[in-house]
């Protein structure tokens, strides 16, 4: 561990003393208090904590969906937040750097599997044919190519989640944020999805942060952060990591 600490490449995600509160005075909720963490390429990291501890808030802050109250966020070497957003086009930033996986797959119901993946590439400026080709490639990578023409409503939970992961990976993001990605899946499917995420992290040198309650998959993470009342309590390094 100490050896790898030295040779570890520059972290992809750096969160430095980030706080976030909602409301003021009596209604004030401190969702995050001085949270600092770093995630390096290739790492799969879990965020653990009781309900209301700030896990989703932390993910949203890292994904530039939610503006922190203070602190500093560096994504892939670029300082994106330092007391204020340093970029005006946060959606573009997300398109370039961040992939999201949701608890419920959130596929667009009016597009088939291939197009749900291709739409991200279209937004990123790929030509239609190229977007489609890469989408099918990704579906194949995630073992759902046989469902490429299916509409989301007809996919099983596991298939839908894998299509959603394909979408999250489409534009080669190096940061993947997942909010309870396996909560809707049975333990076998959850295991498959986690193995896939590990494969992505390893093969694409990506950093993966996943919120989870699911004890069955703890062994699939390199590191585990515990949140309580908005503060980072402990970090467990996983023996399997």
């Amino acid at each position: 561990m100490i050896v790898s600490e030295v040779t570890r490449p520059a972290p992809l995600v750096q969160v430095h003393k980030v706080s976030k509160h909602f409301g003021e005075d009596e209604t004030r909720v401190d969702a995050l208090r001085d949270v600092s963490l770093e995630v390096s390429p290739g790492q799969v990291v879990a965020l653990l904590g009781p309900s209301g501890s700030g896990k989703t808030t932390l993910l949203n802050v890292i994904g530039c969906i939610l503006e922190p109250s203070s602190g500093r966020i560096i994504l892939d070497g670029e300082v994106v937040y330092d007391g204020r957003w340093l970029r005006s086009d946060l959606r573009r930033l997300r398109l370039e750097k961040v992939g999201f996986i949701f608890q419920f797959h959130n596929l667009l119901p009016f597009l088939n599997s291939t197009d749900n993946v291709a739409v991200v590439l279209n937004l990123a400026g790929y030509a239609a044919a190229e977007a489609k080709r890469r989408a099918v490639e990704l579906l194949d990578y995630l073992d759902v190519a046989h469902r490429r023409d299916a509409m989301p409503a007809s996919l099983s939970g596991g298939e839908a989640q894998r299509v959603a992961i394909a979408r999250a990976l489409a534009n080669h993001p190096r940061i993947i944020l997942a909010d309870e990605p396996t909560a809707a899946l049975d333990s076998q499917r959850a295991g498959i999805v986690m193995d896939l995420l590990r494969k992505v992290a390893a093969e694409q040198d990506a950093a993966i942060l996943a919120v989870t309650h699911d004890e069955k998959i703890f062994d699939r993470f390199d590191r585990i952060f515990h949140l309580r009342d908005g503060a980072l309590e402990t970090e467990t390094s996983n023996v399997f990591g």
Binding site: R91, R92, N106, L108, V119, L123
Partner: peptide, 13 residues
Amino acid sequence: LREIATLKLIGAS
């Protein structure tokens, strides 16, 4: 709205 939020999340302008 949910689809629109998803689109925004994945980077739609």
